[in-house]
Each structure stands twice: as C-alpha cells, then as structure tokens.
Nucleic acid binder design. Structure first.
Lengths: 192, 192, 192, 192
DNA sequence: TGGTAATCGAGACGGTACGTCCCGTCTTAAG
DNA sequence: CTTAAGACGGGACGTACCGTCTCGATTACCA
C-alpha cells in the first residue's frame, strides 16, 4: 500500500467525516485551482470544523497525498498483458487518463509545487509519490529483463525514472500532452 | 534568442536600483528558502521601496525569471567542442554547476512551483524558461544530426525534452544528483 | 439613551480583547497625536492581531466613537443640582474636565476631522456624538423652561446647539480654553 | 490682506502657473471630496510638475488657505448698510452663499480637519482663518456698540465668536443649514 | 439508561505577507 | 536654470489565510 495513512484510528474517529473531507478536497480542486484551495474552504464544503481536518492531517499536502492515493489507487496500475510494451502502455494509459480526467493531475502538480515550499511536504511526497509508487513503472521493465524479453544490459530503473520525469514534466507544464499517443511514444522510445 | 527580455523599460528607470534589486533577490534566496522570500525582504535588502519593485515587475515570479536569466546566461551554455557528446556534456556540466553552486537551482524549483500557483507566472516561465531556452539543448543535437554525426532518424527534439525533464525532475526532488557523472550518463543514454 | 451601543456582538467575542483594544486606543492617543495613531499600533499595544480590530469595527473612526463614549459616559453628564444654571455649569464643568484631562478632547477633535474625510465616519459621528448626546445639554434647559424657571419663549434647542458649537470650536482650535470659567461664562450668556 | 502669501516672489516665478495651480485646486475640490484631493491630482490638472507646487507651498493646507482667501475675499465681506443687524445679515448672507455655492465650504471644512492632523496647518489656519478674518464679524458689532446702537455692556467679541462657532459647526456637520434664514436667526439671537 | 468524556461545528484569535496608495523628495531631459 | 514628468524611499492601509485556540452542543461508549 501507500504512504499516506498514518492515522492510528483513535477511539471514536468518524469514518463518515473522513470520507466527507476527502470528497470535499477533491471537489475543491475540481472547482478551482489547487493553489487556491484553502483548508477553510474544504472544511466549509465538508461541513466540518477546520480543527477536524488539522486533527487528522498535519497540513494540506499531507491531506492531498492521501487524496491522490485515493484517486490513483496503485492496484489500478498493476496489470499484466503479457509483454513489457503492452504492460507499460496500459499502465501509462490508465495513469494519464486518471491524471487528466480527474483532479489527480492538478493535485500532483500542486503537490510537487508544495514540496518546494514545505520540507515536511517534500518528505511526504518523496515517500508517498516517488518511493512508494516507482515500482509501478519499474516492475514491468524489471520483469521483462528477468524474462529475457529485453537486453539484460538494459537499466530498468534509469528507464523508469525517465518515464516518471517526462510524465511529471508534462503534468507541470502541459497536462494536455498526457495522451495515449504520448504514452505509446514514451514506451517506444524507452524500449528502443 | 533570450530568456526574459531585460529592458523594454519606459526610459528613465534607475539602472542602479534595477541591479540592486536583482542582487538582493539572489541574496535572499541564498540566505533562506525560495518560498520564504518576501518582496518586502528584497526591498529592504536592496534599500528600495516595495513599490519600486512592483513598478517594474508584476510579481515575484516575473522578477525571478529575470534573476534566473541573469544567473544562467544563455551564452554561457553555447559551446562548440567538436562533437555532439562533448558539446552536450559541456552544456549540461556548466548548467548543473550553475544550478548547484548558485541559487539558480533553488530559483528554478521555486519558479516551477509558482507556475502551478499563478497562471501569469506559468506563461512567463513557459516563455522564459522553456521556449526561450530549449534551443540550448536542441542545437547541439540538431547540428549533430545535420552533420551526419548521428543517425538521421534520431529525434533531436524528443531527446532534448527528455534531458530537460530529467534535469528538472532532479532540480525539484534531488538537486544533489546534478553531478558531472549524472550529466555524462544523461548524454550517454541519450545518444545510445 | 446611549452614544454607541456597546455590544450587539454575535456571541462569543472576547470581552478581554475588546477592553484591551479600547484601552490601547486611549493610550495610543495619550502618547501621540490622534492623526498619527495607526491601527497596527493599537493592535500591537493591545497584543492583538490587526484583523481582530477590523473584525469588530469597520474603521478607525468607528472604534474611536466607542472609545469616546467610554471616556465620557453619558450618565456622568446627567446631574440634578436644582437649577438650570447649576445643572448646566455642572454638566459643562465635568465635560470640559473630561475633554482636557483625558484624551477625550483630542479624540473628539480627531473624529470631527475624520468626519470630513470619510462619509461613513460622518454618519457614525453625527449619530453617536450629535444626535445621541445633544439631550445632555438640551434636557437641563428644557426642564427649566417646563418648570417655569426660564421664560417660556426661550428656545432651549437653539441654546443647546450654541453651547455645543462653542465647545467644539474650542476643542478644535484652543482646548486650553475649556476651563470652569469658560463653562460659567457660556452658561451665563446662554441664560441671559 | 490675509495670511497665506508667504512667497517672496523669487526671480522668475510664473504668475500664470500660480494661477493655474489655484484654479486646479478649486476644480479638484469641486469634482470630488476635499480629503481625496492629492497634490499629484492638482499638478496633473494644472499641467504642472508636482515639484512646482511644493516649491511655492509647503503643504496642501497652505495651498488651500490661499485658495480659500481667493474664493472668499475679505473685502467681499466688508459692507455698510446702516445698522448692525443689516450689516451682519449682509455679511453672513454673502459668506454663507460663498460657502455653499463654491467649494469654499468644503475647503473650510477640510482645512479645519487638516488643522487637527498637522500642527503647521493649525498655525496657518489659526492665523489665516481666525485671527485674520474675525474682524469681519467683530467690526459691525463693535461699531454698533461704539455708535450707541447697542447696549455698551454687550460683548461684541464674545458674540462674534459665537457666530463663528455656529457657522463652523454647520460647515462641518450640516452645510445645508447655511441658509439666509439661518443667517437672520443667528443675527437676531445675537442681538437680542 | 444516564453519565461522562472525546469529538465535533463554528469561528475568534495572533500573526505575517500581500499588493495598493499617497506622501514629499530626488533625478532626468527638454526647452 | 527652470520646468514636466515621474521614479524613488517610506510607511499605513485593509485583505487573505495560516494554524491554534476556545467554546458549547452532540455523540457514543461505559457503568
């Protein structure tokens, strides 16, 4: 599973509130820009006191790491279509669709921005979004190497990082480019 | 071409103040974190009224686009060492040195963050840092193709974008990785 | 009736902060000139955020109308010494003492000045300081007429307005003249 | 003549500019509220550099004391209609007309306000508007006493001050009351 | 089933930076 | 040398959120 679930579920925490807050957080980003979302606005929208949010998440980035994990659940990205190429294309296709069709893309961009602002956020994001999820790209490549489908000299981790870097580059500057065509090209260049 | 056109200014602007502000802006980042830099703090440090800053730059990102262009002047990155590999290694080496040895790296990261916050900033950054500077990476690759040094099917622009994406990825998450070794590896993988 | 209705407040306002702000506002005028008093300075002195002042008063004049009402409480000026002359002399004596021995005089002068600047202030001041308090001068005169102590043709309201006008004239230009002697003369001329 | 002409007419001062500035100052008040008039606005309107205004007048109140003297020239208020009552009514009638039909009333109110802000302004105003002009009200009363038209015990100066106080009171709070009827009543009550 | 303690909504609070406004002074270039 | 134009340092403004805090009212466990 993923980083962002540090809550020890103390005695009488309301699951309903928890979900209401996550839902409100998604809706708030869908409505405006990520950077304009305030904790107050989420609280208002969720019909919840501000304190109730701060009780369970230390900060806005921590909350949104969990929201992101909800919107792009890792198991959605675990596929097996037979070949490295097919697997990667499927993974990236699903990821890009999530990033463009839900607020996940805006949230990812916003989180990368917040990571520059807040060192605690940087750690949470590094753990939750980099370390915690890079295997999703690495695995198809690594197993293709292991199966002998790809040249054993191929550096799967370097390639995975290139894919991540290009994805994030697009998320940050040109989310429109996150198309199936871009996914195909990315895989093709990687495997060349 | 140039990143942020330096002086389309309306005539009698004080060059001394202009420089003092840029210098103060650099110093402010060197002293603290980019996100913590305040316009007031820059004004104070430059011995200048806040209004004098707002008179010439609409916002903090606009100011820092110019600061970045000052710290990493494009002509610093125009070299000709004979081969594509040598040129690229030299360009990236110089760039990485600037990004790590001056506040330029922190500024670039901060600007990418602000681009997520402020649509005007996004435009300024896209124009100034992407469109205005991508030729610095593209040119060595394109001319290598033109000279027949590289396979004519090689897509120089795609490769340049990969280099940029990986560089920015490192700037955002792990500036320590911007080493000469990383530059060499990046060039090697690109030209493989 | 009262000048500025003190607490139509929405419930859980901190009375301690309220009082601290009023106290700081008085002290700030006592320390410097009314026009030099800053909302920031009052906030600082009261150990309060600026927003806490703006939350409860729309502007500096609104705040000082309440401060004035605190410094010169109307019931202080309700006396009954037997005769119109005695009553008026007592009322004006107390008023003048308040105006000269506390910052009330400076505040009154400042408020009259602000009324020229800010239409909202003008309304607040007209309501709070003119309409709300003129009965303090009118009443002794009116009841003297009613009791037959003064000629029934005497226009108590005109006389009250003359007293107010002369008092304010002195407050604005020569606060030193607000002496017991001036009070006696004013009453004598009025009742002649 | 009046206070506000401290200018030693240095060498090449332009009378045309001087008049343009005074005219612009009047027009600026006529257009908006006195408190909103800025020196910049007057300069702009007069087609003059800001410095040119500051060269000849130390501050906005100093400028407007001269403007006021221009709008309500003292000789306009020197009349002789035969009786104290007639003289006073004529003087007050003309004064009230000036105060209501030109920006003079707004300027007077504004100056009284500025006098509370700026000690230098207070001196200028006391000299220019009180000491320099009170004889206009005193004279008709004093000469009536001298001529035996009024009881020799009548205190002309006290009465003049009452008239001034009531006039200013109206200027500050209710300029609409400056009617011929008010002038008659004021004279009648004074001479009773 | 009533007592009691944590959790909740609401929102006041101290604080900090914002970007704007105007002051009165200083600088520049044109006449 | 004076002028208009306007840049400049300075400083208060009123706003927006932050993250903390204090209130009762509600809620859900436990006696």
């Amino acid at each position: 599973m993923l980083a962002a679930a540090p809550q020890p579920q103390p005695a009488r925490r309301s699951q309903a509130k928890h979900r209401a807050i996550l839902r409100a957080a998604v809706a708030a980003v869908a409505d405006g820009r990520f950077a304009d979302v305030t904790i107050d606005a989420i609280a208002l929208r969720a019909g919840v006191g501000k304190q109730t949010i701060y009780r369970w998440w230390p900060s806005k980035p921590a909350l949104y790491v969990e929201v992101y994990a909800d919107l792009v659940p890792p198991d959605l990205l675990s596929v097996d279509c037979g070949s490295a190429r097919a697997n990667l294309e499927e993974v990236l296709g699903r990821l890009f669709r999530r990033l463009t069709e839900t607020p996940a893309g805006a949230i990812l961009a916003g989180l990368l921005a917040l990571a520059q602002t807040d060192p605690a956020a940087k750690a949470a994001i590094t753990d939750g979004l980099v370390i915690g999820r890079r295997h999703l790209i690495q695995d198809p490549l690594r197993s293709a190497v292991a199966r002998g489908e790809i040249d054993p000299a191929f550096d799967a981790d370097w390639a995975a990082e290139t894919i991540t870097a290009r994805t994030w580059h697009a998320v940050l500057l040109a989310p429109d480019r996150l198309t199936p065509e871009f996914a195909r090209r990315l895989v093709a260049e990687t495997l060349r």
